[in-house]
Design a protein around this nucleic acid. Structure first.
Lengths: 206, 206
DNA sequence: GCGGCCATGTAAGTGGTTACATGATTGA
DNA sequence: TCAATCATGTAACCACTTACATGGCCGC
């Protein structure tokens, strides 16, 4: 249900084709809400039938066309209303912490591999989000630039402030996950060292 | 795909019926992986046809029965293998941060409501997880007690250590989310105070 | 005898994933 | 002429959600 609002958020700064949207997605909203093209195109069609956006066929070369969408007033209102509706929080479903809870049944090696992969995963995300923070600071994100161009000067600080706030939150989370996994590695070291006969093939317990 | 391993994790400490599992779920694994009964019962059937578990009809009163499942050797191996497979991380899809990124289009009031709801949400989770940490510390969780009963004394520390590690991670995350949202509230205060004509019905920008 | 718990589901729908499919255009 | 990129999807599948359905058992 959030996908359409992510799309509306992008289209509100100016008309784009499905293809453009898909590209912009990975460079902006995609950092908080991933969506593949196979989901974007159908969603756009659906949004059009519901009157949130309107598409216009534009010629491209001799035979080809591209469909450029813009937000309708209905769509704009829908976006503003969405901002006011309480968020529907998903029930917790966390594969990493599920796995962590049963690491005692794995070997130290396997436990370490898991924790190191977790660190790697979040370091990747962290790099993305930190990069985005830098691009926000120097106003270098194409989507942000377009948005600011259509924003009254007094409102720019606010726009930038909330983008920064968002990515700072993500960066914090990534750092938290990394710190947690590092503590996990220390825990594994400690458990392995302190006498207990861990790794005495606990996986072979029939 | 994690549901079955969450169920296996519970069944590995001893046979349970679907109903028992469903109850235990909310008291243990459910804190990291939620699942409603409408998902648990069919999944158990599926796991049985795949040979991971075996069910046995037990009489209950005169006419009724209950189906008690236990893990097969195949199931046990599957669980141990799962521990070794690299985690499939889901692509980022974060409704709260998506919303946060566009708060400049909302009124200060709406922005505050969102952030306060976020704090409330995570305070609720935090309370759950902190409670679980306490129950781990005093070894007062029924599922944990059962598990420890079937564990060699030397392995108990390890079992407890990983449970604690898991919930500490969740507690950290909750605290992080709360701290982030509080900073958001301060940001809203600052933006509203500092001259800018926010709240001058920005939602009415046609 | 009745209410609350025990016990087990089905059905319809949503949102997302993965893989596949097709063809036009543009620049080297 | 060939590869990269522009452009737009479809199809099958899976996990999960929400709502509904049914009936026996047990203690008061």
């Amino acid at each position: 249900m959030s996908l359409r609002y992510a799309l509306l958020a992008l289209l509100r700064v100016g008309p784009l084709s499905g293809y453009d949207l898909q590209k912009q997605f990975s460079l902006s909203v995609g950092h908080v809400w991933h969506a593949p093209d196979s989901q974007i195109y159908p969603e756009l069609r659906k949004m059009e039938t519901e009157g949130l956006i309107e598409g216009e066929e534009q010629p491209r070369g001799q035979r080809a066309t591209r469909r450029v969408y813009h937000v309708t007033e209905t769509g704009d209102l829908a976006f503003l209303e969405w901002l006011q509706t309480p968020l529907a929080y998903a029930r917790v479903r966390d594969p990493a912490h599920l796995r962590a809870a049963y690491l005692e049944a794995a070997t130290p090696k396997v436990a370490r591999a898991f924790l190191q992969a977790h660190i790697g995963q979040w370091e990747g995300e962290l790099a993305q989000w930190e990069g985005e923070l830098v691009r926000i600071a120097v106003v270098d994100n194409p989507m942000l630039v377009r948005r600011l161009a259509g924003t009254r000067p007094g409102d720019r600080d606010r726009t930038i402030a909330f983008k920064r706030f968002t990515y700072e939150g993500l960066v914090d989370r990534a750092r938290g996950e990394i710190a947690w996994a590092r503590r996990g590695l220390e825990l594994v070291d400690g458990l392995e060292g302190s006498g207990g006969a861990w790794a005495a093939l606990p996986a072979a317990r029939a």
